[in-house]
């Protein structure tokens, strides 16, 4: 069995991943014409490359449908209950940077920290009877972070489109959103809270502990890690830790499948 390895199928992330592998001397080439759901990597014949969206790659490595893939840590953390138990992150790739942050209106001169947000929420609830509304697409990450930071008095408003516009539109008070430079948030009149960085994310090689691994797929994965080790040396050590975690699970490495 070969290694099922997924890379992003579109956008800037796709180009960056292709560029990364090309620079390491391993070109990714699509198979099957324009439809392009599959690809191969020259020099790594046992790696079956699937082209998926970054979100699908995250859910794929969590469920174990694919052995490994390149996706954002932010998406993985949002989708997994307890990421470290199902996925290992082996190689931060240095691109696809995206921070998941808590941002409030710039006019809130009195708010600098998460503790301030809890306090403002408490006062709002006492005054109006309603809780602070937080617009986000990252519902689970928001909930976990707010709980860990001791923030209550809030409700999540799930946002489908442009989250950063929610406060100005009057549908939320604050946002939890992805940002790279903070410019979009700033131009929407929002500022990032000092201790409100939930995940400092970048594209990473994520390996699944729940996938059906065979000795052959592990060998193929090792050769893929060696291929990128010229650019990210510490990926080898992390791969070895992943390998021992996999063996420690006690599941036999299947020859069938």
């Amino acid at each position: 069995m070969t290694l099922r390895f997924a890379v992003p199928s579109k956008g800037r992330l796709k180009e960056q991943v292709e560029g990364f592998f090309a620079e390491a001397g391993f070109r990714i080439e699509p198979l099957g014409g324009a439809r392009g759901y599959f690809a191969r990597i020259f020099g790594l014949p046992d790696v079956e490359v699937r082209l998926l969206s970054a979100g699908e790659i995250a859910s794929g490595v969590i469920s174990g449908d694919i052995h490994a893939g390149v996706t954002g840590e932010d998406l993985l953390r949002e989708q997994a209950g307890d990421l470290e138990r199902v996925v290992h992150l082996l190689a931060p790739l240095g691109f696809g940077r995206a921070d998941l942050v808590v941002a409030v209106p710039k006019s809130w001169l009195d708010v600098e920290t998460m503790a301030d947000i809890d306090d403002v929420g408490g006062r709002l609830e006492a005054r109006t009877g309603r809780k602070l509304r937080v617009a986000t697409k990252y519902v689970r990450s928001t909930r976990r972070f707010f709980t860990a930071e001791g923030v209550g008095h809030y409700r999540i408003v799930e946002s489908a489109g442009a989250t950063e516009g929610a406060p100005a539109a009057g549908v939320a008070d604050i946002v939890v959103d992805i940002t790279t430079t903070g410019a979009t948030l700033a131009s929407n009149g929002l500022k990032i809270v000092a201790d409100g960085v939930i995940v400092a994310s970048e594209a990473n090689v994520a390996a699944s502990l729940s996938a059906a691994w065979t000795p052959a797929s592990l060998v193929a994965f090792r050769s893929l890690i060696m291929a990128i080790a010229t650019k990210i040396p510490h990926a080898v050590g992390r791969f070895e830790r992943f390998e021992s975690a996999l063996k420690a699970q006690g599941k036999p490495l299947n020859h069938g499948d």
């Binding site: 710039k106 306090d119 403002v120 709002l124 406060p167 009149g189």
Partner: peptide, 22 residues
Amino acid sequence: MIADLGVQTVGARGADDIAERL
């Protein structure tokens, strides 16, 4: 200060509420 930042107050929190909390 809010005007200097080039923004307006939004939603439930006016300048009075912010000043009071400060």
